[in-house]
Nucleic acid binder design. Structure first.
Lengths: 251, 251
DNA sequence: AAGTGGTCTAGACCACCGT
DNA sequence: CGGTGGTCTAGACCACTTT
C-alpha cells in the first residue's frame, strides 16, 4: 500500500507517488524556504522527526543525507543537524573560484564603491525574472587579493527584497556579501550558474583594474538562486587573469 | 569489536580503522583500477557482494551509493550495477562545457589535424608527473559547432600509455576522444581539473579560429585523471566565446 | 518466475559532544 | 551522563527487467 507522511492529505487521483524519504525531504525544504529555521539553527533530531512523521529513523536519515549533499544542511556528529549558512567558514569560498597562480591563500578584500537604484535593463530583468524597468539595486565593487585589484563586479538585486541596502551597510563589518544578505534580509543563496567568456577590457574596467584598454579579461556572468530556484542576484564580474586563474573541477 | 571485510588481513597495530562500507568501497575502486571489470561491464549484484564480504546488503549498498555519486558506477534498476563508461551518452558531455548562446543542441564535430611524439616541456611534464623531456604524444585538433570552429585543442598524453596512437586512429569512427582512450587503451578518465584565463589570440590560434590576432580567447588548461588520481592527459584549449559561453554550475 | 536494484523497518551498538 | 549523528543488521516488500 502506498504511504504518506501526512495521512490527512487527500491523495485523491494524484498520479504521482514519491517515496517516503522524498516527501520528508520536500517537507523539510519547504520549512527552510519559509524560514521556519534560520541559517545556522539546529533542526529537530532524526529521532524526533521519525516520530513526528511515523517513519523509521533510516527514512528520515536518507532525506537529510540528500539535503546535506546539496549543501542545504550540515551534519555535525554528536551535536545535531544545522541549516547551512554563509557565515560558516566552510561555505565561505564556495562561490569564489579565482585562485592566485602561486597557490597562496591570501585574504581577499572587497571594496564596494557605488550603490544605487536603477531601472532594470532587459538583460538584467530577464535574469531576475522581473519586468524591464523594474527597480533594481546596482552595486559596484572591486575585489583585491594581496592589495591588487583583480575583480570588478557589478551586482544587480531586486530592490523590493533588499530595502534599505546602502553603501554604508555594505562597507560596515567584515562579513561576506552573501552573509550580509542572509543576516540582514533573510535571503540565502543556495545555488548559482555562471557563464564565462573572454572579452576585451573597456575603458571603465581597464581603469579600475589598471590594465590597458582592450586587454583580455574573463567575463563571469552569474545568476544566483535562493530556495525554489528563485533568482535573486545577477552579477557581471570582470576578472583579471594574468596572475590568477578560475578553477573548475569536472567530476 | 572492530570488524574487517577480510579477516585474514593482519590488522596488527594499524591506527586507522575505516567503517565496513568504506573498506568495501576501497576494494571495489581497486577492482576498477586493476581493470577487473571493464567499462560498461556489470559488477556482481549487491546480494552476492554482501555474501562474499559477510556483511548485510545495506552495507554494500552504501559503498555502491557513494561510487555512483562519484560517477564511477551507474545503477540501473532491475538490471544491475555497471562500470561507468564514456561510451554512455549520459557521460558524453560531462567534460565539454561550451554552450551556444542560442541554447541550440547542435552536434559538435572534432577534426584532429596533427599527432606527433615530442619531448615534454617542463609545464607539460609537471602536469603529467613525468620527467622533463619524456616522450609525449601531442595532438592538435579543431572542434566546431554547426560548422564553425570554436575550440583549438592541443592535447598531451604520456607516450608510453598510448602505443600506436596515430592521426588515422583519431580520425576513424565517430566515438569521442575519451571513448577511444577507454576502448583502445584501457584508460578511463574519471576526473579533471580546469584552469581558465582570458588571453589574446596568437597568430596560430587566430588563424585556426578565424579571428584577428590579439582577439580575446578563453584559455582552458585541463589536467585529467584516471583511477588513483593519476594524471594521464593535459590539454590547452583556446575557446572562441563570441557566440558561445563556458557554463559552470556552483552547487 | 527469477533476479536485480529501491524502499522501509525495528532494533542494536558505536563515536562524539555537551553538561 | 544523556542526546546526537554514524554504522550495521536481518528481513520484508516493491518496482523494474529479463527469461
Amino acid at each position: 500500500m502506498t504511504q504518506d507522511i501526512s495521512p490527512s492529505v487527500a491523495r485523491a487521483t494524484a498520479p504521482t507517488f514519491s517515496p517516503l524519504y522524498r516527501q520528508i525531504k520536500d517537507f523539510l525544504v519547504d520549512c527552510l524556504a519559509r524560514g521556519e529555521w534560520g541559517p545556522g539553527a539546529a533542526i529537530p533530531s532524526e529521532a524526533e522527526l521519525a516520530q513526528r512523521f511515523n517513519v523509521s529513523q533510516g527514512t528520515v536519515r536518507k532525506a537529510i543525507d540528500e539535503m546535506a549533499a546539496e549543501n542545504l544542511l550540515v551534519r555535525r556528529q554528536g551535536k545535531g543537524t544545522f541549516v547551512a549558512s554563509h557565515d560558516d567558514p566552510r561555505s565561505h569560498y564556495r562561490f569564489l573560484r579565482l585562485i592566485p597562480d602561486d597557490g597562496s591563500m591570501v585574504e581577499s578584500h572587497s571594496e564596494p564603491f557605488a550603490c544605487a537604484v536603477q531601472e532594470a535593463a532587459p538583460e538584467v530583468a530577464a535574469a531576475l525574472q522581473l519586468e524591464t524597468g523594474a527597480p533594481v539595486i546596482v552595486i559596484k565593487r572591486l575585489l583585491s587579493f594581496a592589495g591588487k585589484s583583480v575583480i570588478y563586479d557589478q551586482i544587480y538585486l531586486p530592490a523590493g527584497q533588499f530595502p534599505g541596502l546602502t553603501l554604508e551597510t555594505l562597507r560596515a563589518g567584515e562579513r561576506s556579501f552573501y552573509s550580509l544578505l542572509e543576516n540582514d534580509f533573510g535571503v540565502r543563496m543556495i545555488h548559482a550558474e555562471e557563464r564565462l567568456r573572454a572579452v576585451a577590457a573597456d575603458a571603465e574596467s581597464a581603469g579600475l583594474l589598471a590594465v590597458a584598454e582592450g586587454s583580455p579579461l574573463l567575463l563571469v556572468e552569474r545568476t544566483a538562486y535562493t530556495y525554489g530556484n528563485q533568482p535573486v542576484e545577477w552579477r557581471r564580474g570582470l576578472y583579471l587573469t594574468t596572475a590568477h586563474y578560475y578553477r573548475n573541477d569536472l567530476g
